[in-house]
């Protein structure tokens, strides 16, 4: 999957603060860009269902909306802390950290 850009949004949480960040893979360090690509490939991201969150939302959990853009198009997945599968946790953590940091990665 040739990823060009990832749109990451995090809402909810105890503080209820929204974080949103557009991450162009070309702007990231080689280490981060290649790890993100690997994780997306491992997950078969394009084949994941759009809604990966329990309807019965859990109090104070974050909701993540991840849109991955490739040359072919884009795919969005919405998930939450405990509803995300174990395999997705590293991706969430990495994107979340990039979104929170104000410095160039």
């Amino acid at each position: 999957m040739q990823v060009e850009r990832i749109k990451f949004e995090r809402t909810g949480g105890f503080a209820g603060m929204r974080i949103a960040r557009d991450l162009k893979l070309d702007d990231l360090s080689d280490e981060h860009a290649s790890r993100i690509s690997e994780l997306l490939d491992d997950l078969d991201f394009e084949e994941l269902p759009e809604q990966m969150i329990n309807e019965d939302s859990m109090p104070d959990q974050f909701t993540y909306t991840i849109t991955v853009e490739t040359k072919k198009g884009e795919h969005t997945v919405i998930t939450g802390d405990a509803s995300a599968p174990e395999k997705m946790q590293e991706l969430l953590q990495l994107l979340d950290r990039l979104a929170r940091s104000r410095k160039k990665q």
Partner: peptide, 21 residues
């Protein structure tokens, strides 16, 4: 819970706390 987890939540059974950022 996790690294850089600036949150706490109730998961239906228990309380969960992060260490901030």
């Amino acid at each position: 819970y996790r690294q850089g987890y600036d949150n706490a939540f109730w998961d239906g059974e228990q309380m969960v706390y992060g260490d901030g950022d």
